[in-house]
Amino acid sequence: MINFQYARAVSVSEAVRLMAGTPGAKFIAGGTNLVDLMKMDVERPTALIDVSRLPLDTVEETPGGGLHIGALVRNSDLAYHPLVERRYPVLSSALLAGASQQLRNMASIGGNLLQRTRCAYFYDVATPCNKREAGSGCSALGGLNRMNAILGTSDNCIAVHPSDMCVALAALEAKVHVTGTRGERVIAFADFHRLPEAEPQRDNNLAADELVTGIELPQRGFETHYSYLKIRDRSSYAFALVSVAVCLELGGGRIREARLALGGVAHKPWRDAGAEAALSGQSANEATFMRAAALVLSKAKGFGHNTFKIDLARRAVVRALSQAAGGTPQSQSNKKIA
């Protein structure tokens, strides 16, 4: 690890000001991803601006009937928050599927959003990686890419966004509150993370000086018909091969509204408006689910070791939709069974 400066911010405005005035600085809260990256020599920030003591650690109901979650709420605290468990069980389920208990106890909600995408070569500084060093090349394209993306890839990068929580937030259509030197703004969840395109070094659309201050959940939580399905190599502390968040509203045997998001398949939580539209108004049966799944994966592309994920994702979408439609009870504390 190399030397760096450290400063602790006492207010959001100070944090933002410090960041704007310190080229190469990074915010640090739980540190569960950043410290790892620093140890592996992937990130070399000139300064760490500690935001962990800012008063952003509350969960409050909004006037519109939704929920505002402070960026510094711990992943564990949010997963077990009574309002989240009751009204947004898909979010609770996704949170508990993520990382390990120890990491969830440390990790903040804002940090979860901002964790870097995953790829073995991004972490291996001995290999070329466009995300680490623009233009150096992508080692994953012809390398061991079992965990890598199958949707929304570019010739420059096939890394995946590994968050479970974000897949559920995408399905719930959360909003991200951020503050920068030019003031506050609200970003729709779908616009927060980005695809690699020609700039894989950028994981999201935040400006350099912007700090995530909170997440807003709309009023609708889909607490009856939901599923978070995660397929992985071991039951804890493993990223998804594929994950699926589904939220459904049913009426009269038909799907009134469907939300569908995938994790572990792209550089961002993956939503497909076409597939959701194809579900809407249809009978909640396997044929419908298979059509939707086929639509989601119609543009998927495998890179050898990860090609199996296309079919796996298709099956996972069908399974998650079936679970959600059936109102299959899901254990929030035991994610042993997907």
């Binding site: 390990s100 190599d233 071991r234 039951s235 804890s236 502390y237 493993a238 990223f239 994610k335």
Partner: peptide, 11 residues
């Protein structure tokens, strides 16, 4: 140790 997957208690 995130990529080299030893079994966890849940496994």
């Amino acid at each position: 140790l995130g990529d080299y997957k030893l079994p966890t208690a849940m496994d």
